[in-house]
């Protein structure tokens, strides 16, 4: 109960700050509209207002404050505007509609999941290789690290272009960008996990004259599971970012990335924010789902709950 109150207090504080921030952010737009409607605003012309500070305008035109939360194309939409938009584009729209966020989310989700599967598979394979071969450790790991220093926003268009030129388009290029971001945490976590058995446990296997295969399946792999799940949670969030970034340079017509792009073309800030929230909610759901699988699997492995 105490924690619930604490959590709600934090949420309320964030929402409160957001509402407050809307006032200086949107005041100029509100005053411009008011001037056009023939109302008396202070100072009277748009040029003068451009010079003035936002807080000063708020102080001089207190009559307009309540309008900042219901602007049509606000610089910063109020929370309830985003919530209303989210509601109207999810629950109130048919899923097949091009304006349904669920439709767009599902497009992005499929690229995310495919990319996540590719990235995780690749990550685990690389980790197994790195742990078992010194050559791979020294040759692959540096490249894996370097790969993550390149901004994905710079790389994504090139991946799209290169793949398009060899005839690959649609879901796969986005999934590959998603995989590019998600394999890295899996490699790092899995290498750490596969190396987590201590000397004593490895010595014990040695006293049984166990083969490398047996050591892997009976000791290293089970030991790595907690590490793997931590990595998977980071990986799937990264995968979603990758899928969205992959939708930006293609001018894609569907997907959360496309929705963000369209919103920014037409100055539809409410649409941008609701797409951002949809992405955040989707990521949270995916991470929570992985957490659930982790609980069930590790619970079955006898880890104390």
């Amino acid at each position: 109960m105490k924690t619930v109150v604490a959590v709600l207090t934090v949420v309320a504080a964030i929402v409160g700050l957001w509402y407050i921030a809307c006032v200086p952010m949107n005041i100029k737009g509100v005053l411009d509209a008011a001037e056009r409607a023939g109302e008396q605003v202070e100072p009277a012309t748009a040029r003068e207002r451009r010079e003035a500070s936002a807080l000063g305008l708020v102080a001089q035109n207190s009559f307009a404050i309540d309008r900042v939360w219901s602007v049509d194309r606000p610089r910063l939409p109020a929370p309830h505007q985003v919530v209303v938009e989210l509601w109207q584009t999810t629950v109130m729209k048919k899923i097949t509609s091009k304006r349904s966020l669920i439709y767009h989310a599902q497009v992005t989700l499929s690229a995310t999941l495919l990319g996540f599967a590719i990235g995780t598979g690749l990550g685990i394979l690389l980790a197994v290789g790195i742990v078992h071969s010194r050559v791979m450790d020294m040759s692959v790991m540096p490249w894996a690290i370097v790969s993550q220093t390149i901004p994905i926003i710079a790389l994504a268009p090139m991946i799209i272009v290169v793949l398009y030129s060899i005839g690959v388009q649609g879901l796969l290029p986005k999934a590959i960008i998603a995989a590019y971001l998600s394999f890295f945490p899996v490699v790092v976590g899995m290498v750490k996990g596969l190396r987590s058995p201590d000397h004593m446990q490895l010595d014990l296997m040695k006293t049984y004259f166990a083969s490398g295969n047996q050591v892997f399946w009976k000791l290293r792999l089970p030991s790595s599971m907690p590490y793997l799940f931590t990595s998977l949670k980071i990986g799937i969030a990264a995968s979603l970012v990758g899928a969205i970034v992959g939708e930006l340079p293609t001018g894609a017509v569907a997907g959360l990335g496309a929705r963000l792009l369209a919103g920014s073309y037409y100055g539809q800030t409410v649409q941008i924010w609701s797409a951002l929230f949809a992405a955040a909610i989707l990521a949270a759901l995916l991470v929570a789902l992985l957490g659930l699988i982790e609980r069930v699997l590790l619970g079955r492995m006898g880890v104390k709950a």
Binding site: M200, Q201, D203, L204, T207, L219, P222, M225, M301, G302, V303
Partner: peptide, 13 residues
């Protein structure tokens, strides 16, 4: 031979 270490070293899973 069977070897018993200082710690039990049982697999928690």
């Amino acid at each position: 031979y069977g070897y018993v270490f200082q710690a039990a070293g049982l697999y928690p899973w």
